[in-house]
Amino acid sequence: MDFSTKPTYIKVKDFTVSNEEFELIIDEELQLLKTYPQPSPVNLPKYYESEDYISHTDGKRTLFEKMYQFIKTHSLNKKLNLINSLLPQKGNLLDIGTGTGDFLALAKNAGWKTTGIEPSQKARAISISKGVPFVENVSDIKKTTFDVITMWHVLEHIPNLEQQISELKRILKPNGTIIIAVPNFKSYDAKHYGTFWAAYDVPRHLWHFSKTAIEKLFAKQDLKLIKTLPMVFDSFYVSLLSEKYKTGRMNFFKAFYIGLKSNIKAKQNFEYSSHIYVIKNS
């Protein structure tokens, strides 16, 4: 994908680590945004070096962290129920971007043969303590190995997007399933908060997706989008962080209002704050 001549969609700031500003360049045909400039692989890890990067910790230090962990527990069960409903015959499950391992630990206890990939040493250590087995890279996996591959808010972090999707195709069994969850920059909360929208999360988020982008990118590898599902809790979580970035404090009442309004509008246009995409191999 050549973004060299594409226009700027919006300029946004890294509110978590560096306070640096980045451009989001848009491919109009794909309806895909690319963070520019993208940090080199050598420099990218430093942008994750924050105690506030909550997906790499089991912390419950603050009210926000306690709320996050409560919602995470609810979401984990919904994720497992979704997979079980799609594939009642349990098999091999790969989760890319395992974080602290709670999802794979739950899936393993439910009868799935689980494997994880997680680049963060800190998060991986927590996962290993929960009995989660790992491989280092997708390239280490033999072809047609997995019945299900999940990436929960991970695809937006992958530098080489098209190569990653090609690798997913390679290691997926025939008729296997890929489940992707990513933020949606076309949601109401994204438009409301603009440059303060927390789900842009530059430069950790290298890509920013729409429904069109997901369908077209995976279709290039003969992978078919068969179902799109809402993640209704994300609008509240993202709005709460966005309020902090915009005003300097977490306004719970305003964030709840915007999150609720986003979900109400999404009932009409199906542009939720985040979506889950179910994709099938041929």
Rank of each mutant, 00 (worst) to 15 (best):
D189V: 02
H192F: 08
S273F: 10
I96R: 02
V232P: 00
P174S: 12
E243T: 08
K66F: 08
E215S: 05
A190D: 00
K72T: 12
L30H: 06
K113D: 12
K280I: 11
E243W: 05
S166P: 15
N281A: 14
I10V: 08
I158E: 04
E21G: 09
S120R: 03
I25E: 04
K227C: 05
Y53K: 03
H208I: 04
Q121L: 11
S242L: 07
A190Q: 01
E51T: 08
F218P: 00
S262C: 07
H153S: 08
A219M: 03
N137H: 12
K13I: 09
Y9N: 02
Y36A: 13
E20R: 15
K265R: 13
R170V: 10
E29L: 14
L229W: 02
F15T: 04
S120W: 01
P37E: 13
F103R: 07
S242W: 02
S120Q: 06
K173E: 14
F236C: 01
I117N: 01
Q221H: 11
N19F: 12
L229C: 04
L93P: 04
P133I: 10
A125V: 11
R61V: 11
G116C: 07
K78W: 11
N175Q: 13
K13H: 06
E49A: 14
K261A: 09
L32C: 06
M151K: 01
I126G: 09
I26W: 00
D95H: 10
Q31R: 13
L217D: 01
D58V: 12
L168E: 03
I117K: 06
S239N: 05
